[in-house]
Design a protein around this nucleic acid. Structure first.
Length: 197
DNA sequence: TCGCTGATCATCT
DNA sequence: GATGATCAGCGAA
């Protein structure tokens, strides 16, 4: 994965992130997650479901930055969600990390996710994934290809998506675009509206 | 396993 | 003042 590769629309990047491994190191303790489910979000006026739909605001400013940034936002009063910023700088786009499998630092992930009934639940869901990795608002805007690659790392491990679906509620040209991609994996979050590819 | 509900607050209208 | 890219806990089947 490179910054140049990420400089394309989110719906093109999303499937290529499947299988990639995101590592976050906190106090010398790494937690790595193999990404199993993602969702693409478009730019201004493109995708009504996207934070960027109505233009740039202080919150979504990171989405307008260079590809390869981490966009972390707070929602529902209690949850953090993480995205990888895509598209050329200045044109908003992001890929939401919806689910993953913890493949390194399982013990630490368990400590952070005490409510998880089994290891497969550690990062099964967008907010669970950020919690397992120890991500919060302080990680917003972090550059995955910047100087601090010892703390944040994205390693490519391309796997073809097994499940592809278009998001409902997206009209116009967007209705033709597949936005959601997943592997056929037990850690994929329960909601599967998809026709299988 | 499914469906419902409460929690809780930053952001935008 | 309403809403949301959600989760966990509960009861029912």
């Amino acid at each position: 994965m490179s910054r140049r590769l990420l400089s394309r629309p989110a719906d093109q990047i999303a499937p290529r992130l499947l299988g990639s491994v995101l590592t976050v190191v906190c106090e010398d303790s790494p937690v790595s997650v193999r990404i199993t489910e993602v969702e693409a979000y478009g730019g201004v006026g493109e995708d009504p479901g996207s934070h960027a739909f109505r233009g740039r605001t202080p919150r979504n400013a990171t989405m307008f930055g260079p590809p390869g940034l981490l966009y972390v936002y707070f929602t529902y009063g209690m949850h953090w969600c993480a995205n990888v910023v895509t598209g050329p700088e200045g044109k908003a786009g992001a890929v939401l990390l919806r689910a993953g499998e913890v493949i390194e630092g399982v013990d630490l992930a368990r400590e952070r996710r005490t409510s998880a009934k089994s290891d497969r639940d550690l990062a099964r869901g967008p907010a669970r994934l950020t919690k397992a990795l120890g991500l919060d608002g302080s990680a917003d805007g972090v550059d995955l290809f910047g100087d601090d690659t010892t703390t944040f790392r994205l390693a490519p491990r391309p796997i073809a998506p097994a499940i592809v679906s278009s998001r409902t509620g997206v009209g116009g040209a967007g209705a033709q675009t597949p936005w959601r991609f997943a592997l056929d994996d037990p850690t994929v979050s329960p909601y599967r509206p998809a026709a299988r590819a």
